Simulated assay, not measured.
Amino acid sequence: MTHPTTQSLARGFAVVDFETTGLVPERGDRAIEIGVTLLDPDGNIEHEDETLIHVSRDLGAQHVHHIRAAELKHAPEFDGIARQLRDYLAGRVFVAHNVAFDSRVLRSEYARLGYDIPVQGKTASANRRGAEASTTLCTMRLGGKLLGVRSLASCCARFGIGNPDAHSALSDAHATALLLREYMRMIPDWPGWAAHLDAAEQARWPRISENMARWMPRPSHASDGSNIMDSDIPLASRVTSETAPAPPPRLREGDRIVLTGAMSQRRADWIDDLAAVGVTVWPSVTKKVRLVVAADVDTESTKARKARAYNIPIVSERWLKTAVENGVDAA
């Protein structure tokens, strides 16, 4: 299917889901994956797309979104997808399950590039039209009103909608699009459908000047079956046995180590466990730190990037568990 362009903007709905590093974009959390499902005004799916998004920071709760840092090495930055995404969204109602969150993420990412986008709540014409005129629509709120449930899984279950890859952006967006279509069938005469479509169609989007980059889905989603993680293309900062400093054979009393990322064991518990064997968890990376322990050894967190600059080994949480179990050498 051809991509829409600024010359052929379509009236309809754009269902979007983001995977992010955290829940507060206003405090620096970033989008790391987006899924987009486009529907016509009657709820028929017209096009779908997805991409990972490269960010130079820790990726947050990886046990939820299952995105590894190494998978983002060749993904576009947000500025590389901003123009294509604008062409997908312009003229369409922005739909998400918890649209308050996803719209904040979207506005934050565009604001980083200096753009103010018209993805917003009620417009000035709302009262005159007798219906909520908005460029956004929330399937979670509709679920609460129409079904008495709010979670995506619970709403989808009412209609037998599957979501086999939950917490993958496109899978969640696709499920949300099917959910929206069911709501449209439940209340076909609701004036809000037309009010939202009119508001979105009239909204003025800025012209995006950034260059376009190729969208890159998760390796497991690649349509040709390829997996960039298994390719011969070198990753710019991938930690490999040839380029990374080797970890020490054992921990020793007095070592300073730094923790980075969301680990499976609580950080406070790690601090206590390591203190019990004479190892100190240090708050920042200095040249006196012996190693950095990361939830993801390919992370581009500030601590990990500084460790690489100082040639300090970066090891996994599993390595640390084994090292503690094997005992700590005396200083």
Rank of each mutant, 00 (worst) to 15 (best):
T5N: 11
G12L: 06
V16S: 10
V16P: 08
G22V: 11
R30E: 14
E33T: 10
L39I: 03
D42E: 14
D42C: 05
E46M: 14
E46I: 11
E46R: 11
D49Q: 09
E50C: 14
T51P: 06
H54T: 03
S56A: 12
R57A: 15
A61C: 00
I67C: 07
A69T: 11
L72C: 13
E77Q: 15
E77V: 07
E77Y: 15
F78D: 06
D79Y: 12
L85H: 02
Y88F: 10
L89Q: 04
R92G: 01
V95Y: 04
V95F: 04
H97E: 15
R104Y: 01
L106F: 06
Y115E: 13
D116A: 15
V119K: 05
Q120H: 12
R129F: 06
A131L: 05
E132F: 10
T136Y: 00
T136K: 09
T139N: 04
K145M: 09
G148E: 09
V149Y: 07
R150Q: 15
A153R: 14
S154H: 13
R158Y: 08
I161E: 11
N163H: 13
N163L: 09
P164D: 12
D165K: 13
D165W: 11
S168T: 15
S168I: 06
S171T: 06
A177H: 12
L180C: 10
L180E: 03
Y183G: 06
Y183K: 04
R185Y: 01
W190C: 01
W193Y: 00
W193K: 00
D198C: 01
A200W: 04
Q202H: 06
A203N: 01
I208Q: 11
A213W: 02
W215Q: 13
W215I: 08
A222V: 00
N227A: 08
I228Q: 08
M229V: 09
D230H: 01
D232F: 07
A236E: 08
V239A: 10
T240G: 15
E242S: 15
A246R: 15
P249A: 12
G254T: 04
I257Y: 00
I257E: 01
L259P: 05
L259M: 12
M263E: 10
S264M: 15
I271W: 00
A275F: 10
V277K: 02
V279E: 00
P283D: 01
S284W: 01
S284G: 05
R290S: 12
V293N: 05
T299K: 14
T302P: 03
A304M: 02
A307M: 13
R308Q: 07
I314W: 10
E317S: 10
V328M: 05
D329Y: 08
A331Q: 13
